[in-house]
C-alpha cells in the first residue's frame, strides 16, 4: 500500500492531535476525523497479513521468473534470491523489483508465438489475479 502505512499513521497522529484543540469548525473537524477513522480501519486490516502477503508473493514471482529462463534477461538474478530480512519496507522494495521484472517478462511473452509463451502468459495472468486476492480488504471502497 502506498503511501506506506507507518508514514500515514504518523501523519494521522498529528491530525488527530490538531483536531483535539478547541474552537475548530465542527464540520471541518468531523470531516478530518471521519476520514482518519476510515484510514485507521484500513491500516488495521492490512497490518497483520502484510509480511505474509509479501513473502508469499515474492516467492511466487521468483518462481515465475526462474521458469521463464532466458526471457527474463537482466532480471534473471532476481529469481535466485531469498527474503532474509522480513521488515515490511525491505520486503516491499524487493516486491517492487520483482513486479518490475514481471512487467518486462509479460511484454516479452506477449510478443512470442509459441505454446510455451502462451502457457507462461497464462501463469502470469493467474499470478496477477492472485496478487489482487492478496491485497483485498473488506474496507475497500469498491
Amino acid at each position: 500500500m502506498k503511501p506506506d502505512i507507518p508514514a500515514v499513521l504518523a501523519e494521522l497522529a498529528g491530525l488527530v492531535a490538531r483536531n483535539a484543540a478547541p474552537g475548530l469548525d465542527p464540520a471541518e473537524r468531523a470531516g478530518a476525523l471521519s476520514l482518519s477513522a476510515a484510514l485507521l480501519g484500513m491500516a488495521a486490516e492490512a497490518w497483520d497479513g502484510a509480511a505474509q502477503r509479501l513473502v508469499e508473493e515474492n516467492r511466487a514471482l521468483r518462481a515465475l521468473l526462474a521458469d521463464a529462463g532466458d526471457r527474463t534477461g537482466p532480471d534473471a538474478g532476481l529469481a535466485g534470491a531469498k527474503d532474509e530480512d522480513l521488515k515490511i519496507s525491505v520486503l516491499s522494495a524487493t516486491n517492487a523489483r520483482l513486479r518490475a521484472g514481471l512487467i518486462a517478462l509479460h511484454a516479452v511473452v506477449e510478443g512470442e508465438d509459441s505454446p510455451e509463451a502462451r502457457a507462461l502468459e497464462s501463469r502470469i495472468w493467474q499470478e496477477l489475479r492472485l496478487s489482487t486476492e492478496r491485497r483485498r480488504m473488506s474496507s475497500a471502497l469498491a
Binding site: K2, E11, L12, L39, T132, R135, A140, A142
Partner: peptide, 22 residues
C-alpha cells in the same frame, strides 16, 4: 497535500481498480 482524502483513494481504490481491469 497531506490531507487524508488523498490517501483514501490510493488505499481504497487501487486494488479494486486492478480487479476491475482484470
Amino acid at each position: 497535500n497531506r490531507e487524508p482524502i488523498m490517501v483514501l483513494p490510493a488505499w481504497g481504490l487501487q486494488n479494486p481498480q486492478d480487479r476491475a481491469i482484470l
